[in-house]
């Protein structure tokens, strides 16, 4: 019998560690950069969304509200109260839009990933790559938003600068959660449920626009379970200069949430893409 083909000249075995995956996943970021080289307006315009909210809600509505009392007894303007929360919700919405809608489209309609999976890149690299891309975009927005906050005089504490890395963490957490959800969705109609029952209520009730203390104890406890509540709490704390046990717990919650979501996303996407 003829010999089974040589193993000669085989490239060194691809390392399967997380660091190697991270390195290889940069190809996905490169791909998206190439695509958005022509569509940079889309990225640029994404910045206006939170800005409009800040102007409309923070200032327009703010004239009706007056001041808001903080946990430590200080009173701040409504714009200063709502700005960090808008940053948190923008991080969530951006990450979810990217990881749910874009990834769903590539997964099901344009079959971009099928083509990539025929190369040495695997599912883990795709998932991490899409997350990195989403974080890259998110980081641009965070920087821009923080600059606007400074420009509008909404900066109360130098701790504000910690807002940037924390926002990136928040983006990563929701991006992983979005990926994990996407892996379960089959049709476009399947989006209605997670968007309507999870994302919109979180957006409205997680202390974004008003302190949850206006609600009965039971609802407050329920709201404290949601990741956006902790994201808002953490960013608001940093923006107004409060970092205590509460904020530490918020941070711990986000780290754990991000890890679990990432774990599910990686495993579930693998099952979804390998048939």
């Amino acid at each position: 019998m003829t010999a089974i083909a040589r193993r000669a000249a085989a490239p060194p075995p691809a390392s399967t560690g997380i660091v190697a995956s991270l390195l290889r996943s940069r190809r996905l970021v490169q791909r998206n950069l190439l695509v958005y080289k022509r569509g940079w307006m889309v990225i640029f315009s994404g910045f206006f969304e939170p800005l409009f909210y800040l102007l409309g809600i923070g200032y327009g509505l703010g004239t009706l509200v007056g001041g808001v009392e903080l946990a430590d007894g200080r009173t701040v303007s409504y714009a200063a109260f709502v700005a960090p929360a808008l940053l948190a919700t923008a991080s969530m919405n951006g990450a979810i839009a990217e990881s749910i809608f874009n990834v769903f489209f590539k997964l099901n309609f344009s079959r971009t990933y099928d083509a990539i999976l025929a190369t040495p890149l695997g599912i883990r690299e795709i998932a991490i790559g899409e997350m990195l891309w989403s974080l890259f975009r998110g980081t641009l927005y965070v920087f821009a938003f923080v600059l606007v906050m400074i420009g509008m005089g909404l900066v109360i504490s130098p701790m504000l600068f910690f807002v940037i890395p924390v926002s990136i963490l928040i983006g990563a957490a929701f991006s992983a959660a979005g990926l994990a959800t996407t892996a379960y969705l089959r049709t476009v109609q399947d989006f209605d449920l997670p968007m309507g029952v999870v994302v919109m209520p979180m957006f409205l009730f997680s202390g974004t626009f008003f302190p949850i203390s206006v609600y009965p104890q039971v609802i407050q406890l329920f709201m404290e379970l949601t990741p956006l509540f902790h994201a808002v709490g953490l960013l608001r704390g940093l923006a107004v200069g409060i970092f205590g046990l509460h904020e530490l717990w918020d941070l711990a919650y986000m780290v754990v949430f991000a890890s679990i979501a990432l774990w599910i996303a990686l495993n579930r996407l693998e099952q979804r893409l390998i048939k």
Binding site: L61, V65, V68, Y78, L204, F205, F209, F210, V214, Y215
Partner: peptide, 9 residues
């Protein structure tokens, strides 16, 4: 959310 919650402010 907005009507009752925010309204309270």
């Amino acid at each position: 959310a907005m009507g009752i919650g925010l309204g309270s402010l």
